[in-house]
Design a protein around this nucleic acid. Structure first.
Lengths: 215, 215
DNA sequence: CGCGGGTTTGATCCCAGTCAAGTCCCGTGG
DNA sequence: CCACGGGACTTGACTGGGATCAAACCCGCG
């Protein structure tokens, strides 16, 4: 691990860790701060693929094609560990434990992306926002970022949330307004007032298929 | 590898490999046939998270939580290799090469899910369908399933495609009709007539006149 | 004070969802 | 042989959620 790590990186808000199309030889684990992974479409639209929180692995997806398929941009001051992709083979040879952990994280990521796909594909604006706020809050408080008053730091703009949920900025704003009695997001921090009600709205519990013809 | 593999599995069309919520101790690699990974929402909606093609790894996402977050359902007769999750540690210890390959595949999967998210979040129905047909065709022909006449087997229903792209069945049908001059999908096989035009549609903003200009 | 980025709100428009009928194509049974 | 039924696919008419357009507003900052 010691040999593997290639130094810490500090990134200021608004600055990119790497850009779409870059052939970067590094990947990262986030230690502090928050950011987004965004993908740009030819027409200039932006999609936030996911948010980056402490503990996340960033940039591993580009391992295959070489060129990154998205940009990573800091939303607050970030600190990350940098690793060299070239030495991944080494890691797999010398530290199966860590290699396994890496796969575990990748699987968790994939799990989350699957949920996101279901949300974008099937849910209404209100459900999406409720789901997003809930997920974000839970994730952040899970890594111990909840303050005594129950608020978590959330340094993004409405534009980011809009691009994450595939909604227009205007409609995102209106939807947030409708949710304000359940969750309050202002001045860079998010506080849940009525989490159960939010969960209800998000329909977060994924149900089983109605009929289960057994094999 | 020999010790690791836990036998082949055959699945008939319409039958589930595993169900959402199951605590299965296996994961699989697809050898033949095609299927879908679907996620069910409480309201009865269905989201196709992705399609399963030969070479894909299936069921690894459930490694963490134990319970699967989606069901895998065969669309045509499938043959898969079954592996025991319990022995993954072993694999990582004894065969770093294979462990690395597994991570590579997971990263590829994540890459693809990211593209899907961008598609669901930002693109119109016409763009989504064009993108999907293109992706599916390329994937299938990459694994050598293209017939001499350029068609690939595609055993799904319009419902599956609709649930994959987050569109209603009706609108999916109408959109497919508009694309019929570029791609023909009938009787379980898909043939691209004008791939460049499809790519154009998938990437650029919809440059076509709105209503029925294509017939 | 003016400027620019982020947020809020109202008015209008349109893409895609929903409802409702068909049509085509099987496989089954009279 | 045809009648029947069910599943997939089509097509048209109508509706509505969210996009788009257009203005304010509300800061912090030079």
């Amino acid at each position: 691990m010691m040999m593997f790590r290639a130094g810490d990186v500090h990134v200021a808000p608004g600055v990119a860790l790497y850009h779409e199309g870059d052939e970067t030889e590094y990947f990262y684990t986030a230690r502090e701060g928050q950011g987004v992974r965004v993908k740009h479409l030819p027409n200039g639209e932006r999609q936030v693929v996911n948010f980056i929180f402490p503990g996340d692995v960033v940039g591993l997806q580009a391992m295959l094609s070489g060129a990154a398929a998205n940009s990573a941009i800091a939303a607050s001051p970030m600190v990350l560990c940098r690793f060299e992709k070239r030495k991944l083979h080494e890691l797999y040879r010398n530290s199966p434990q860590r290699a396994y952990a890496l796969t575990w994280i990748a699987a968790a990521e994939e799990h989350f992306l699957g949920e996101t796909i279901a949300t974008l594909g099937q849910r209404t604006a209100l459900q999406r926002m409720a789901w997003a706020l809930l997920k974000i809050y839970n994730r952040l408080s899970a890594v111990g970022l909840a303050l005594p008053n129950g608020a978590v730091p959330f340094p993004f703009r409405q534009r980011d949330l809009a691009d994450a949920m595939g909604l227009s900025l205007v409609h995102t704003n209106k939807t947030l307004a409708r949710l304000r009695r359940f969750a309050i997001w202002e001045k860079g921090s998010l506080r849940l007032v009525d989490a159960p009600a939010l969960a209800e709205l998000a329909l977060t519990d994924c149900a089983l298929p109605p009929d289960r013809p057994l094999l």
